[in-house]
């Protein structure tokens, strides 16, 4: 199972990941780099939670937990009720501009089919975003200073390390 890893010590709020995501998904970014406090930008996108409230909320079968760990929205089955938007703990799902279809990060499913990595992490100039098997990611994340946690519901999902604010200059 592959997961995303956000090393937030590195994020420089350049929003290049948003541009990369726009390029891959018809001009609409599914990442939103958000300032959570005056000093900490966070690229917020789907955390691909192990316990997935969006999937449980969907009255159709439009949201699927793919075998690789990604949570995928099947846009053709979406009835645009917006229940997943309310259910998501992270604000990572939104209806598209016409209010028609729920959209969120699909870990660049179309790129991964060709054996390519998601566009956001290839674009990130600060190498804040990484992607790989959960155990490898956790091994790397534990070596970082500051708080490490799985930033999703359940035991798997996106791994995040926060900068260690107690150390000056980190």
């Amino acid at each position: 199972m592959n997961v995303l890893y956000l090393n937030l010590t590195r994020c420089i709020y350049c929003r290049a990941c948003e541009v990369a995501c726009e390029r891959e998904h018809d001009g609409i970014s599914r990442v939103a780099v958000t300032l959570v406090d005056p000093r900490q930008p966070v690229p917020v996108s789907c955390r691909h939670c192990e316990k997935h409230p969006c999937l449980e909320a969907c009255p159709e079968t439009a949201i699927e937990a793919a075998p690789g760990g990604a949570i995928i929205i099947h846009t053709r089955k979406c009835i645009s009720c917006g229940l997943c938007v309310i259910a998501c703990p992270f604000g990572a799902i939104e209806l598209d501009a016409g209010g028609k279809i729920a959209e969120k990060c699909d870990l660049c499913e179309h790129r991964q089919r060709d054996g390519r990595l998601p566009a956001c992490l290839l674009t990130c100039p600060a190498r804040c975003i990484e992607y790989g098997p959960l155990d490898d990611i956790l091994a790397v994340a534990r070596t970082k200073p500051g708080a490490t946690f799985v930033a999703a519901m359940g035991e798997t999902g996106t791994v995040v390390t926060l900068p260690d604010r107690s150390v000056p200059g980190v």
């Binding site: 958000t34 955390r47 998501c88 992270f90 946690f149 799985v150 930033a151």
Partner: peptide
């Protein structure tokens, strides 16, 4: 509690939400 927050406010408090859902000790 996020069921009563809008998507933008959920994003702004996403780190706090995540820490509540998954205590940092679990994977440190």
């Amino acid at each position: 509690p996020w069921l009563r927050w809008c998507a933008r406010c959920k994003r702004e408090s996403s780190l706090a939400t995540a820490q509540v859902l998954q205590p940092a000790e679990a994977h440190l």
